[in-house]
Design a binder for these strands. Sequence first.
DNA 1: CGTATTTGACCAGCGC
DNA 2: GCGCTGGTCAAATACG
Length: 172
Amino acid sequence: MENYPMLFPTHPSSSYHLTSNMLRNTTNQLFADLSSNTCSTNSSSSLIIGSKEGESFNVGSSGSDVKPSKKKGEKKVRRPRYAFQTRSQVDILDDGYRWRKYGQKAVKNNKFPRSYYRCTHQGCNVKKQVQRLSKDEGMVVTTYEGMHTHPIEKSTDNFENILNQMQIYTTY
DNA sequence: CGTATTTGACCAGCGC
DNA sequence: GCGCTGGTCAAATACG
């Protein structure tokens, strides 16, 4: 059983820490309740994390399978999802990990489609979805699901890179 | 040529 | 039971 203590795992990578810290400072990220309130609430800060239940659902095991049935002993696992809103004109919020887009769906309440991303690391089942609010075009809701158990592969050592991201984030 | 993205189809959960 | 909505897969395509 794994617990999900926080949004971002504390990795020894100082650059990561810097990145997340930078993110917090530049953009006001707020937690939104996905369980009861959904994101339709225009309230400023809605802390969430509704679900508990830490379930590690192995994905990349032995190639691709069309699994109609779930694994043994697990049913509808609702692992916690961490969502935070970000004021940004860009929906590509690079947190240092490499994401592969695996789906895109249109949401009823929003005019903009929701993008589904998954971490490209093998054994890392971290998923995230990015959704832009139709109410506020400059508001992007990013929902993280799961935790990374591996270091960042992106070269955030470059301060220029970080600065560049900061410029992007502060483009509003 | 290898990898990421796009896009339609498929499926499961939920409400009526 | 049926239809709607959300979530995922996988083939095709784009891009380096």
